[in-house]
Computed example of a mutant assay.
Amino acid sequence: MPQCSRLSRSALLVWVAGAAVAVLPTWELGREPLDREETIGASGDIYGLVCLFNGGTTLSPLAPLRRDLQAVMETTEGWAFPALVVLLGLLACLGRRDPGVIGRRVVGLLVLIAVIEPLASLSSYRRGCGEAISLFSAGWFREAAGGWGITQLCLVVAAVLVFAASRVMRSVTGDESEESQAGMVWRRPVAALVDYLIVVAVLSAVVGAAWPLIDVGFKVHMGAGLLERADAYVFRSSPRPAELAILAGLFLYSWVQHALWGRTLGKRLLGIRIIAARTGGRLGAGRTALRVLVFPLLAFVPDVGLWCLLVGGLWILLDQDGRVLYDRLLGAAVVRDRAKRAQPQT
């Protein structure tokens, strides 16, 4: 681990400029007229109600994913997370982290946010719940390209500035174990995406078919994401058995697999697992349950859940082992499944 990094004045100015550019989308969002926000909110509520009370048989299976990604992107932009990513990356480089590794991670996060935001917003362009844009169709590519605007431009420019600044900064020592971990950054979100799609598929195929036998008034609607279902029917109103069953199923899906094998189906596919950082063995049923309550279930808590998870995820930029905050607190680590020596991975 390098003991320090040499930072020139020009590199510092470029990095700070990257943070300033990254905060511009949030700044512009805060300056939007109040009446426009109310109009957008009202149309979104109408859309959500239509989708919730629609049978969902003609909707794209990716509709819940789009809705939930849209909620994540709204939190990301509203709380200026791109600028926070840049600033935390700068603090990490001023400390004992390798500038090259940190720079690549910051650039990757900025580009990922820039790409996902217009894709997640495609659901807003539909004229009705039964007219979802087909994935990878000509209309899908047209809408995705048309969704690029000032937000994406700012994030790309910030990524370029961060990359340039990180190239100027030099580590005192060249031996950096994080170089071998850099290729692991993408595995955790991809594994989480796979698990999400599996859960949605099971809810649609199994729960949706079985629950009407118990409650004839319940159907699994494909128009709403899991986050907004929990928000509307668990936390902001009297809890409904259907939504509580969804949360319980999600908890059991993650807890049982992690407790028994240290990995879910998504992690198995991506070749990673969760271990106890100190012993290298299983994390244990108790700590595994606490971890599942934090991720993914904390995301379902309105207003603060997503924010806390995003902040905890950014801890990888400051942690010397590249672990997220909740893994650090619980003594857990995510490692390559086939690694001869388990090393904490991001």
Results as ranks from 00 to 15, higher is better:
Pro344Met: 14
Val234Ser: 05
Ile316Gln: 04
Leu270Lys: 03
Leu87Phe: 10
Gly225Ile: 10
Arg287Pro: 01
Pro25Asn: 11
Val256Ser: 03
Gln181Asn: 10
Lys267Phe: 12
Thr173Ser: 14
Trp255Pro: 02
Ser134Arg: 11
Met169His: 03
Pro82Lys: 08
Leu283Ala: 15
Asp195Leu: 09
Met73Glu: 12
Ser8Asn: 07
Val194Trp: 05
Val50Asn: 05
Val294Gly: 00
Phe81Lys: 02
Val111Gly: 01
Leu88Asp: 01
Ala259Ser: 15
Val168Leu: 11
Val256Thr: 06
Ser5Trp: 06
Tyr125Gly: 09
Gln343Asn: 07
Arg291Met: 10
Val200Gln: 09
Leu52Asp: 14
Arg167Trp: 11
Ile102Phe: 07
Val292Gly: 00
Ala159Leu: 14
Arg66Glu: 15
Leu283Asp: 04
Tyr47His: 05
Arg36Cys: 04
Tyr196Phe: 15
Leu318Asp: 01
Cys154Arg: 02
Ala201Ser: 13
Gly280Cys: 11
Gln3Gly: 13
Pro82Arg: 08
Leu88Val: 01
Leu325Ala: 14
Leu213Thr: 03
Leu269Val: 15
Cys51Asn: 14
Pro344Tyr: 13
Ala210Glu: 05
Gln181Val: 15
Phe235Met: 07
Arg36Thr: 10
Ala42Cys: 06
Ala232Val: 08
Pro2Cys: 10
Val168Gln: 10
Leu110Gln: 02
Gln70Pro: 00
Ala245Glu: 02
Ala276Glu: 15
Arg236Lys: 10
Ser177Thr: 08
Pro189Cys: 11
Trp148Arg: 01
Asp98Phe: 12
Gly305Tyr: 09
Pro212His: 07
Arg263Lys: 15
Ala158Asp: 07
Arg187Gln: 13
Leu250Ala: 13
His258Thr: 09
Phe218Met: 06
Ala138Thr: 12
Gly55Trp: 10
Leu197Cys: 15
Gly18Thr: 04
Arg341Glu: 15
Gln70Glu: 11
Phe81Thr: 03
Thr173Glu: 15
Gly312Tyr: 12
Arg338Trp: 12
Asp319Phe: 10
Pro212Ala: 09
Leu293Asn: 02
Gly223Ile: 12
Arg170Ser: 12
Gln152Arg: 02
Val157Trp: 04
Val311Asp: 01
Leu91Arg: 10
Leu91Cys: 09
Lys267Ala: 07
Ala191Pro: 06
Ala19Gln: 04
Leu119Ile: 15
Phe141Cys: 00
Val324Pro: 04
Ile113Glu: 03
Leu309Cys: 08
Leu306Tyr: 06
Ala182His: 05
Leu69Ile: 04
Pro296Lys: 05
Gly56Leu: 08
Leu227Ala: 07
Val301Asp: 06
Ala242Arg: 07
Leu49Trp: 08
Val206Ser: 05
Leu12Tyr: 05
Gly266Asn: 02
Ile246Asp: 02
Gly305Trp: 11
Leu250His: 02
Trp261Asp: 10
Lys267Leu: 11
Leu110His: 02
